[in-house]
Design a protein around this nucleic acid. Structure first.
Lengths: 336, 336
DNA sequence: CTGGGTTTCGATAACGTTCTCGCTACTATT
DNA sequence: AATAGTAGCGAGAACGTTATCGAAACCCAG
């Protein structure tokens, strides 16, 4: 109820010295003798002293907090990215504040705008799939607030961004399908307007062209397994049906496998399926799902690293980092 | 680079009035005329003013931030709990800071101890499975810091806690196995010392006893699917083998199904498996997994609600809330 | 002893807000 | 017309910390 925490003044009074000395002793800086320093540190520990970040933040105008703005965390990719962010941040003594936009542009704008600029040192954001207007981010940049995008990045804004190599990842996936002998390949694409959707689609199309193949259909929709099922329904409506599916992510690919399984269409032998992410369920589902593994944890770490660099030295040049992916072959692309 | 944000003083100077008036106008309180209020609000918007939380926090000694300390977020349960916490917090205008302990008691203690008490208004924590010493939490309580535990709760400490009804959930699961005709039932238990492990085990044992059955083995280990596999190996070593498994969570149950599938032991028909959580992969795996659904999202929301109540009125009595679970029957417990 | 150079420390002003007073000017009451 | 009451505002202290500047206290060379 009282909740009077012990302050630097209490320690000063206790020891009969000035607050300035205590402050200096606490941050073991120059201008303080070894013995008083030890004395201060000991009594600080004894009195259970904790620094008041509001006060330090006020005078130093820095809060050692970063905001992470992300569509959701209930999937493997995002939660792993956050784990990477969190671990790096803690190493560097930064604290992370979490904001979920639930893939709503309205919430994203609201959070960014209402987020008191003074309460964080920088932002790490993955935009929603609805985001088209970027003015709320533009305002941050004009206020010199460090900002780095990851995974889903806008392409008309000049800041640091870190992504997996979506284009060559898609190339690898398509290449693999072709090597397995599939020829009527369709693509379950992501929502339009997302850079990532564009990159993965482009990799798919370029690889087909390189092999003189035509696309057997591209359907844009959301990222859920339910979306995957619906897309399959549309794709298999016609007379000639595809014999392979490259999905923009694993969740939709899993939806596709489920759809095929229900119709007793042999996955792999008759129609191959490959995803993107390497979600843990991709090796639990049967048949297990071939996929392109994304370095989610590293994306979290390095985007946090880039952000902290921006925070610590102003005018640190904007980076564009692209981390490699890896093809993982499982049962869903085995012909026999 | 300059990053000089506009302050309340700038607005006062601009309008030729005092800072006190601006401050009052901003929080539309008494003692300010409607017209000056409007004037202040308009110029504040025009000058792009954002409140400095360090300053308000310093004088009001409240930060509108809560800390969430959790073992991990890369699984369905925890990430869903956090989603619930986040949404409720945002509604009430609180911000959430995330700390991952990675199930290490060392990190938990470190985070709690170094977390400046003055930087958050309260804590929401789910302890690690190693946590035995609770002194770091005890210190918080003595400093009157609001604290509520969820899911994994210590039982020797006097604070609010919110959990799912582990005991009756386990009863339902065991009851269901018995109703399906399984008789040689084993239990894949959680780590020793966890309240949740104890509750689910007790529900299992009491239900068996009520039906005059004996336990066919209890194995304690971690929460991963790998743990589930290893436990199965041990259980099936003997001459007489169990015909049903009740697992403390879905991940271990999935490990069990995988283990059985690899050995071509028909899941359901020969050995039934039931889990706990209702992880989304439980309906993707084949055969799909029967389970006890936990209200993860509601646990997040209500624990956040209880915490904010504690923050807002001192001496709010400690709550012990237990949310109901639900039996979900799928293929893994079907005999035919 | 004197004087210049260190070392160690203390006073004090900031940081941006809120809060407690008190003061003015206006309205209402008698 | 005099007084009481009230609405609106300003001056200044406070919150806990850091930063700047200067003042002791000490050392050692001359």
């Amino acid at each position: 109820m009282t909740k009077r925490l012990t302050t630097i003044k209490d320690i000063a009074r206790e020891l009969g010295i000035s607050v300035a000395t205590v402050s200096r002793a606490m941050r073991d800086t120059y201008d303080v003798s070894a013995e008083t320093r030890k004395l201060v540190l000991d009594t600080a520990a004894k009195m259970n002293y904790r620094p008041n970040f509001n006060a330090t933040g006020l005078v130093k105008s820095g809060t050692h907090k970063i905001a992470v703005i992300i569509p959701a965390i209930t999937n493997y990719y995002f939660s792993t990215v956050i784990t990477g962010i969190q671990e790096y941040a803690l190493e560097k003594n930064y604290q992370v504040m979490l904001y979920l936009t639930n893939d709503s542009a309205y919430w994203e704008t609201k959070v960014v705008r209402e987020l008191s600029l003074s309460s964080v040192d920088g932002l790490l954001v993955c935009i929603t799939c609805e985001t088209t207007d970027l003015s709320h981010f533009q305002e941050l940049i004009e206020a010199d607030m460090p900002l780095v995008f990851f995974d889903r990045v806008p392409d008309t804004i000049n800041t640091s961004m870190v992504v997996q190599d979506d284009y060559t990842g898609a190339c690898k996936a398509t290449e693999h399908l072709i090597a397995q002998g599939y020829t009527r390949i369709a693509h379950l694409a992501g929502p339009r307007g997302l850079n990532l959707t564009q990159q993965r689609m482009q990799g798919y199309m370029d690889t087909l062209k390189r092999h003189n193949l035509e696309s057997f259909g591209i359907i844009h929709s959301g990222f859920s397994d339910e979306n995957g099922r619906q897309d399959m329904q549309m794709l298999f409506n016609g007379d000639v049906k595809p014999d392979a599916i490259f999905s923009v992510n694993d969740r939709k690919a899993i939806g596709a496998i489920l759809w095929l399984r229900e119709r007793h269409i042999p996955v792999g032998a008759e129609v191959g399926v490959i995803g993107f992410t390497n979600d843990p369920t991709s090796k639990i589902i049967s048949p297990s799902l071939s996929t392109i593994a994304e370095p989610a944890y590293e994306i979290g770490r390095t985007s946090c690293e880039v952000l902290i660099r921006h925070i610590q030295k102003q005018n640190y040049p904007a980076q564009e980092i692209s981390l490699p992916t890896e093809l993982i072959v499982r049962e869903s692309t085995k012909r026999s």
